[in-house]
Nucleic acid binder design. Structure first.
Length: 415
RNA sequence: CGGGGCGUAGUGUAAUUGGCUAACAUGCUCGCUUUGGGAGCGAGUGAUUCUGGGUUCGAGUCCCAGCGCCCCGACCA
């Protein structure tokens, strides 16, 4: 992509109505734009990062046998009456609205009420189980207080997976499988080292649930991490757990963290109200057993920025950067321009994702400052100096070293 | 929802504490020059000072109400 065609601009100063690191950097670099408290647009760079994260998640969900669907955001009150959650969440984070005919609707903040009857229509035989279905979609929550940039918003993108089983044992097995898939996702995104599995309250669903907590001072939760095995416990239930539930040791360190995912063994809490049952081998009708597994796409994006940044801007992990290579043309000399164009096309041909700073009216200093702010992992500079040596200057965003590379060798660099 | 802070060109700030035509930087437009870490000169552009009331000879500034944004808390299946 030629940078001269990107409509968003970088800002020297962050708007004063953003305090959080993620919002300040993402806004300055032109990834997001705030419409209202907790409501953001994703601009070309921001959307690319989102889609990168989504695709990593998609890949791992498919890997564990889950099928992707898309459920509606707009949902009638009737399905929420079945589980009693319309009443239960009256005046809470559930958005409620009416249509012209005065009929009640909500904007989906979770999708158990949609997925359960949906599966019930198709999954009729015991032999159809287990079944795993997910979507990546907008969620709406009427937060009393939106905060921390894109970490707690009123509209956000979430991956939600639902699993349906004929036995607790089968649910347990899949639950563990999802945990592993989640850590593969975190590793690909680049936050596995700072992300911990954390025992937490299960709310009204189950006694406990598991959260995935990424350590950052911008986080809202306090977790206690076992010094021995790395299992964490959320502060909200710490008094019930003096020992690590995993290894039994009692030494913990305390950290602030942001919850980027949460998984629950729902059991029959939703299948019972919808009367979703299967006929067991012995001919008896049994309620279907269910699990749900959330992962905040846009929240992870914010968490990554909180974790990976320096004084000059964002430092994107390779797999989710908006582009792999930031090719910068310094000077508008014909030879330089031609060389840069050629390198740009060559890299594209090799399947590289390149942002080409071809802007004529920008001086080198501004281009470098923008490159640091935007945070693309690999920077390549083409200038008079480098052209003379038939080479390109190479610098990685997370390193200080600057070196030259021969033009014909460039294909080996970057992902 | 309780507490605190803040609303002035696109962005960041200023305005003698109630007093002249709301200033500076940056951005944007045009011209010339310049080209390795946010260049220089010149000429332009851009504001219903959040909204509505009130006090006053006079309000960006004081008072009241509302709206909006940020932060702390509560809340967060």
């Amino acid at each position: 992509m030629k940078q001269s065609l990107i409509f968003s601009k970088t800002l020297k100063q962050a708007p004063k109505d953003e305090q959080s690191v993620n919002a300040r950097l993402l806004t300055r670099a032109g990834f997001i734009d705030k419409l209202s408290a907790g409501i953001y647009s994703f601009l070309p760079f921001g959307l690319r990062v989102c889609q990168k994260i989504e695709n990593i998640v998609r890949q791992e969900m498919n890997e564990i046998g889950a099928q992707e669907i898309l459920m509606p955001v707009l949902q009638p009150k009737s399905i929420w009456d079945v589980t009693g959650r319309w009443q239960k969440f009256a005046g809470k984070e559930m958005f409620k609205l009416k249509n012209q005919a005065n009929k009640d609707y909500t904007l989906g903040w979770t999708h158990e009420e949609v997925i359960t009857p949906l599966m019930q229509k198709f999954v009729l035989s015991r032999k159809d189980f287990p079944v795993f279905v997910y979507q990546i979609q907008d969620k709406f929550r009427d937060e009393i207080r939106a905060k921390s940039g894109i970490l707690r918003t009123r509209e956000f993108i979430m991956k939600d997976l639902y699993s349906f089983h004929t036995s607790e044992n089968d649910l347990d097995k899949y639950y563990e499988k999802v945990k592993k898939a989640y850590f593969r996702i975190f590793k690909k995104i680049g936050i596995d080292k700072q992300t911990y599995l954390c025992l937490a309250s299960g709310g009204s669903f189950s006694k406990y649930s598991h959260e995935f907590q990424t350590i950052t001072s911008a986080g809202e939760d306090v977790i206690y991490i076992c010094e021995n095995c790395g299992m964490a416990i959320n502060k909200e239930i710490k008094t019930e757990h003096l020992k690590c539930p995993e290894c039994g040791k009692t030494k913990f360190r305390q950290e602030k963290a942001i919850e980027i995912g949460n998984i629950f063994k729902l059991g029959t809490n939703y299948t019972k109200p919808f009367d979703f049952k299967f006929i067991d081998k012995d001919g008896t009708r049994q309620p279907v057993i269910m699990g749900c597994y959330g992962l905040g796409i846009t929240r992870m994006m914010g968490a990554v920025v909180e974790v990976f940044n320096d004084a000059n801007g964002i430092v994107w992990p390779e797999n989710i950067a908006p582009y792999q290579i930031h090719l910068i043309q310094v000077g508008d000399d014909l030879k330089v321009k031609e060389t840069a164009e050629k390198i740009y096309k060559g890299l594209l041909k090799q399947g590289k994702e390149v942002l080409y700073d071809d802007r004529k009216d920008k001086r080198p200093g501004e281009k470098f400052a923008d490159a640091d702010l935007i945070g693309i992992p690999l920077r390549m500079v083409v200038s008079k100096k480098t052209v003379e040596k038939n080479s390109v200057e190479i610098k990685y965003r997370n390193k200080n070293k600057v070196e030259l590379a021969q033009i014909k060798e460039l294909g080996k660099l970057g992902r």
